[in-house]
């Protein structure tokens, strides 16, 4: 069955879009990544113009993350207090990141720098997570690691405004999650992605949050970030296609439910391995895209 997209002005297969949404939602519910870095290229592959794919993808992620947040909230995996601070830090970081990218573009070679940065960043995070999780899985030392914090963690405890986050079983200075999330926000804005795949490792390794709570809290903040992006895109570019977004959201919210339930069957280390594999697969795909000549050298771009 085909569906006509009023803003994109094209017809697409409904079942295909719902299936794509389902797959993205599954990953989202399982490991807490928004899925924007996968959804946009897949939508482009099935014929949706890039600008529409990016904006409508953000809108559909609102559906995915609301569904994922709801089930993770019921499972006790959403830390609202920490999530609020992370959201604030992320928004501030994104605002700074937008200016950084303007400066980079003015200096020239911005695309080259961003692409290389993206690949190195993804590859680094992916390899680190994969190796670390594999070691934890083998030794079963996760609990020991949590109980023996690193020297840096001891230093962080000396910072002012220490607040306890009972849901995450951690105590941090308010500045720690705020600054870290602002840094992730800057990176996310430069790379043009939501930042879920950086945010979750950051919460696990730097904030020492349990993996399940990191996933739930990340989905909670993605909900607000994507809602903001959707409204801004609809107003400034008019590139949000509500029909496409809803079709993807129906599939992805169902997938997110399944993913969240599947996450209960896996331990934290296993979940981290899944996330690391996704990040590494994306890095490989991007590297191939950089090295192999594309079929068509021209690709549609937005106005200016």
């Amino acid at each position: 069955m085909d569906l006509y997209l009023p803003v994109a002005g094209i017809s697409i297969n409904l079942y295909l879009v719902v299936a794509v949404g389902g797959m993205i939602g599954l990953l989202s519910g399982l490991v807490g990544v928004g899925g924007g870095f996968l959804l946009t290229p897949i939508l482009m592959m099935i014929g949706v113009p890039p600008t529409i794919a990016a904006a409508s993808g953000a809108c559909s992620l609102v559906g995915t993350s609301s569904s994922g947040t709801a089930i993770h909230f019921r499972m006790g995996n959403v830390d609202l207090k920490l999530g609020g601070i992370l959201l604030l830090g992320g928004l501030c970081g994104a605002a700074i990141g937008v200016h950084v990218i303007k400066i980079l573009r003015a200096l020239g070679n911005a695309d080259f720098v961003i692409t290389l940065f993206y690949v190195v960043m993804l590859g680094g995070v992916g390899i680190f997570m994969f190796v670390e999780s594999l070691q934890s899985l083998r030794r079963g030392m996760m609990e020991q690691k949590v109980s023996n914090p690193a020297r840096q963690a001891v230093l962080l405890k000396k910072l002012p405004f220490q607040v306890s986050f009972p849901r995450s079983h951690v105590t941090h200075s308010v500045f720690v999650p705020f600054v870290l999330c602002a840094l992730v926000g800057i990176l996310a804005a430069i790379m043009g992605v939501g930042g879920g795949f950086i945010m979750v490792p950051m919460m696990v390794y730097l904030l020492r949050m349990p993996m399940h709570v990191a996933v739930g809290t990340d989905l909670f903040q993605i909900l607000f970030t994507c809602a903001g992006v959707t409204v801004m895109q609809a107003v400034s570019n008019q590139t949000v296609d509500i029909v496409l977004a809803l079709a993807v959201a129906i599939g992805s919210s169902a997938g997110a439910q399944l993913g969240a339930r599947m996450s209960r069957m896996l331990r934290g280390e296993q979940l981290r391995i899944v996330l690391a594999s996704i990040v590494l697969a994306t890095t490989v795909k991007m590297s191939i895209g950089l090295l192999v000549k594309p079929a068509t050298l021209l690709a549609f771009a937005g106005r200016n």
Binding site: V62, S66, G68, A227, A245, S253
Partner: peptide, 21 residues
């Protein structure tokens, strides 16, 4: 009416997510 359209899109996506849940 881009403001109305954008807000409606967000609300519809949230509703879809919560209804599925």
């Amino acid at each position: 009416k881009p403001w109305l359209y954008g807000s409606a899109a967000v609300l519809a996506a949230i509703a879809a997510g919560f209804l599925t849940d």
